[in-house]
Amino acid sequence: MPNARVIRDIKARHGVRASEIARRAYLFVARNETLSPQVRHHAQLQLNTFERYTRPTTVKNRCVESGRGRGIISEFGLSRFQFRLKALAGELPGVNKASW
């Protein structure tokens, strides 16, 4: 069972996917200097009406195993401790403990 923060993150990811095209269209209008200021302002106001969990910046890569938000090794999607556990158990192909 994933923890609440992971569930929230999943919600954000689905929200981003659902509203991405509309957001892009409004961004295009709002940042387009060749259009009239009124239209651009209107588009910016529309951008502000989007919900919190539709913005791509609310998405955070959390640990796939434990849900921890910090110390994630992005190549594996694991937090540093889960990475260590899995690497020592030999579950990550190509990863072995350094020794020289």
């Binding site: 994933p2 993150d9 981003v16 659902a18 892009r24 961004l27 940042r31 060749t34 791509p56 998405v59």
Partner: peptide, 22 residues
Amino acid sequence: LRTGAKYLRRRLRGPSMVGYYP
């Protein structure tokens, strides 16, 4: 002038975001 074309040119990030958690 800024035409905002970069917002249309950029690839969509949503589809790959959804598949992060197994």
